[in-house]
Design a protein around this nucleic acid. Structure first.
Lengths: 243, 243
DNA sequence: CGCAGACTTGAAGATTATCAACCACCGTGG
DNA sequence: CCACGGTGGTTGATAATCTTCAAGTCTGCG
């Protein structure tokens, strides 16, 4: 993927990106200057193309849906996460067998890691906070996998996605696009696509939530919360500021 | 837990800790000076005591075994990781319902986060690298949970622990202490303790590995590797240096 | 039209949890 | 010295859950 703009305007867009949802970072003039001087690369990926990150670079999702997955030795696939605006993909750790693929059209900002962690304390703090959040998300998914029954896992997945969307696009959306297949869901939940299908039916028939035609519709949020005890605390963006 | 020494000698011990296994970090005189000036707190925890981290602090395990776990709304427990020398516990993310408990006697170094990420690029790089590794470990555990059969999960857990030990204490140890119960293993693998018991018997009777009397004995490493396709790449300490 | 991918449904089979005992070890206190 | 309780471990029978296998539907698209 070629850069879509020169580094100068990409840096400007990146600064705007950090100041808006979901981060809402308040920058001083000095901090803004530094970010404007960074060698940011803005890219645009077509649907169904691979998003590759070099080992020394990190990547911010600006818009669109992507899927982070990993293939096992036996051929099985594991979906690590459904990525949306605001999510950070670290090149350093996504090595191994993990890879990211654009599902819709995706735009990103890519920055060499030294610029983010070693040049200015502000961006270092941001990185560390976002990596904390990524760890929390991974651990929560692990816990769901470990000790939540499949139906609750599925419900929690949708509640999480909805909450992450609401962080970027203000307001609790009870209806949103979700361009992934039942197979994707199954690989994210450690189930078979067939079983996910049956679980979706249960959710639909119990009037809790429906997922059809690539859109999710939360029909009974209270009921879902009561059933799953979903707590979005692990998704909060706890970005420490200089103050 | 009270600090066991003053900050000055704690900082000195911490610098030695970072220069030794498993990190092997080569510091310049300037970097060493900075680390010696940091307000490090060294602590010692007795077996079966809780290790608490304040939100703004991070913690390095210096010696001993600890267990990071989390309790679910329904009362179930999830073991997130078995912690040993070299592991980083971030206070920021281990909030929520996660907590850490010393299993043996444990010694730690505790540092306020701003000192680690905002005062010097070297420590910021170290933090980011270790958080990358923590994420990789969480994702690998998630993938194991998701798509590996229980017996392989159990085997991989022991291979991972053995590899992490070998990073701190040179040499591939095929026999080591592991002071955790079958219930702990079960909560780490998403199984029941009863089932873990049966799986351990299978491993023992197939002459692959035995875990008895709180010691693990790898009796057929090659066989385990062939069965599980265990690849320790995700455990490597890829700490970027200033060069 | 026909094909491919995604989804749906049913029946059979395998795996793991649950329930219920029981044993072994160890520190405590009579 | 020994009875006792608690924890951890072991084993068997039963039940619930999820996967596998098989078949069929629906949709969009060349």
């Amino acid at each position: 993927m070629r850069p879509v703009t020169d580094a100068r305007s990409a840096a400007r867009m990146f600064a705007q990106f950090l100041r808006g949802a979901p981060y809402h970072l308040p920058f001083s003039a000095d901090e803004l200057d530094h970010i404007h001087s960074m060698p940011v690369v803005a890219r645009r990926y077509s649907p169904r193309t691979a998003i590759t990150v070099t080992r020394q670079a990190d990547l911010f999702i600006d818009s669109g849906w992507a899927i982070a997955h990993k293939s096992m030795a036996n051929g099985d696939r594991v979906v690590i996460d459904f990525l949306q605006r605001g999510d950070l993909v670290t090149g350093h750790s996504s090595s191994g067998l993990a890879c990211v693929e654009a599902t819709t059209e995706v735009t990103t900002f890519e920055i060499q890691r030294p610029w983010l962690v070693a040049q200015h304390p502000t961006t270092a703090r941001i990185m560390v906070s976002l990596m904390d959040r990524n760890w929390s998300i991974a651990v929560e998914h692990f816990a769901n996998m470990s000790r939540r029954p499949p139906l609750d896992r599925l419900a929690c997945l949708f509640l999480e996605v909805a909450h992450r969307l609401s962080q970027s696009h203000a307001g609790e959306a009870d209806r949103f696009d979700f361009p992934f297949t039942q197979r994707d869901l199954a690989d994210a939940l450690g189930l078979t696509a067939i079983h996910v299908n049956r679980l979706l039916r249960v959710l639909r028939e119990s009037e809790l939530l429906r997922f059809q035609h690539w859109t999710v519709e939360v029909t009974n949020r209270r009921g879902l919360l009561e059933r799953t005890h979903f707590d979005p605390e692990y998704l909060e963006m706890k970005i420490s500021t200089s103050s």
